[in-house]
């Protein structure tokens, strides 16, 4: 899932302080799971904004909505009938949802209410960790399903490097060495011979360096 973190309320207030009718829009997917942009967080942010404006003596309308997803036009269309009642939207979906909201409603100012961080998973409640960088050319099949792109600070493909000590990375004692994890897992699987295999140079053209990417699937297009 996409992991996001709440933006400080001060920052959001700065975006919308001159507005009169605000819609706080959440998303029922990833940001709900990482407790940054779901229905509950919509309620908290909207309540805080309402109180802020009331304290200023201003009667600002702050409404709440939580869409099934903000990264799909069909769900964004659900608010087409009411969106005209507002002069700003604070979206607390991920960066994708926020942009899609803005694309769906070109005349509506849309502001982010979260900082979108990475693609990751819930280690336990309150700890989300990065697991994928979407490099576009998955190597997990060769690395015992541990990603050296996302989990190795240097993204090395021939690790571990000299900075690996007692299974930890030199950048932090709390960060596991991805290559130590790979070797440990290969041992567990009895496939250490795979560690010896040479792989062709990774094709980085599918990574972010080539600019915004697309996946085109003509077979499923209508």
């Amino acid at each position: 899932m996409i992991v996001a973190d709440k933006k400080p309320i001060e920052e959001i207030i700065e975006f919308v302080k001159d507005r009169e009718r605000i819609l706080v829009a959440g998303c029922n997917e990833c940001v709900t799971v990482c407790e940054a942009g779901g229905k509950k967080e919509v309620g908290i942010l909207a309540s805080a904004l309402r109180m802020y404006f009331k304290k200023q003596g201003r009667d600002v309308k702050v409404d709440e909505v939580t869409l099934e997803r903000q990264c799909d036009h069909e769900y964004l269309e659900e608010i087409a009938g009411t969106v005209g009642n507002y002069d700003a939207i604070v979206s607390i979906a991920c960066g994708v949802g926020i942009q899609f909201m803005a694309e769906e409603y070109p005349k509506m100012p849309v502001y982010p209410g979260v900082n979108t961080c990475f693609m990751g998973a819930t280690e336990y409640r309150g700890l989300w960790v990065e697991r994928c960088q979407g490099c576009g050319q998955c190597v997990l099949g060769q690395t015992a399903a541990v990603c050296p792109v996302a989990r190795c600070a240097k993204r090395v493909f021939n690790g571990p490097c000299g900075g690996s000590t007692n299974g930890k990375c030199e950048i932090s004692k709390e960060t596991d060495c991805a290559w130590q994890l790979i070797v440990d897992r290969l041992k567990t699987l009895g496939k250490m011979d795979e560690y010896e295999k040479l792989f062709p140079i990774k094709d980085w053209s599918t990574d972010r360096a080539g600019g915004p990417r697309k996946v085109v699937r003509e077979d499923v297009q209508q």
């Binding site: 509950k40 309620g43 908290i44 309540s47 805080a48 309402r50 109180m51 009331k54």
Partner: peptide
Amino acid sequence: VDVQHMLRAFE
């Protein structure tokens, strides 16, 4: 008791 409940009370 959730954050929302307490905020709503203040609101």
